[in-house]
């Protein structure tokens, strides 16, 4: 299975494709037999000794044995540990309801902010943007967000957003932006100074020194979704020269 998966890395897979486990013909008596372990990410499902593809996209791999299907989708499905940009919709008693773009509203406790106590409530209003992390996210339960890390510090999370612009892009572009040493992010940094908040749920928030520059960055990000690297570099070069 490992070898045939390796073989398909970088190729486009469709739902219904399958990989089956083929035991080796000869068993070596001298070497210790190591069981093949494969870690399946999004888009791959285990069924008995077969591996089924359930999403269309490109097969990607990470050392040593992780495999997943990289697809371009728009709808977000909450996953534990991911950081998202949420919009507070309801303030009721001790929890806030937050729209995170998934199928259900997430709950956010008022105690899950840095320095918050029962006396000292955080100042959160309906309509505020919160950058927060999922602590509970599974298909059967209401997802739960927090704005603190495991040591109780905000670590960049919490209420934000004054004078910036919030917009939506596809989840594929978000993952490209968040990838380590992302070329897209590096090119963006060279344009002009700006703040960028990236939520795994497809929401982006940008703020630059002027409204015009904010809009330029937002438009660039929205348009580079369906561009090759070369086309993107050309567009950014033109933007840097002030042609846009």
């Amino acid at each position: 299975m490992f070898s045939c998966l390796k073989h398909k890395v970088g190729e486009v897979l469709l739902p219904g494709d399958e990989f089956s486990f083929q035991p080796e013909d000869t068993i070596s008596l001298t070497d210790t037999v190591k069981p093949e372990k494969v870690i399946c990410g999004p888009g791959l499902r285990r069924s008995g000794d077969r591996l089924l593809v359930s999403k269309s996209g490109v097969l990607r791999t990470k050392q040593p044995n992780m495999f997943w299907v990289d697809s371009q989708q728009k709808r977000y499905v909450p996953a534990k540990g991911e950081t998202v940009i949420g919009i507070v919709t309801v303030k009721s008693g001790d929890v806030f309801k937050v729209d995170c773009g998934g199928s259900e509203q997430a709950s956010l406790s008022y105690l899950a902010f840095e320095g918050a106590t029962k006396r000292n409530r955080p100042n959160v209003q309906v309509g505020d943007l919160v950058f927060s992390q999922f602590v509970i996210a599974n298909k059967d339960m209401e997802p739960e967000l927090v704005c603190v890390d495991s040591s109780g510090r905000a670590n960049g999370m919490g209420v934000f957003g004054g004078g910036g612009l919030l917009f939506r892009v596809s989840l594929g572009l978000i993952r490209r932006l968040l990838a380590p040493q992302s070329p897209l992010r590096a090119e963006l940094q060279q344009l002009f100074p700006h703040e960028l908040v990236i939520g795994m749920n497809g929401r982006l928030w940008v703020k630059a020194s002027s409204v015009q520059q904010t809009l330029i960055i937002a438009n660039l990000l929205e348009s580079c979704e369906n561009m090759t690297a070369e086309q993107r570099r050309q567009l950014f070069r033109r933007a840097a020269q002030g042609a846009l």
Binding site: P15, G16, G43, K55, G57, Q73, K74
Partner: peptide, 11 residues
């Protein structure tokens, strides 16, 4: 359905 990225067992 494929474009939306919904999990499918087959096409």
């Amino acid at each position: 359905l494929m474009d939306a990225g919904l999990p499918m067992s087959c096409l």
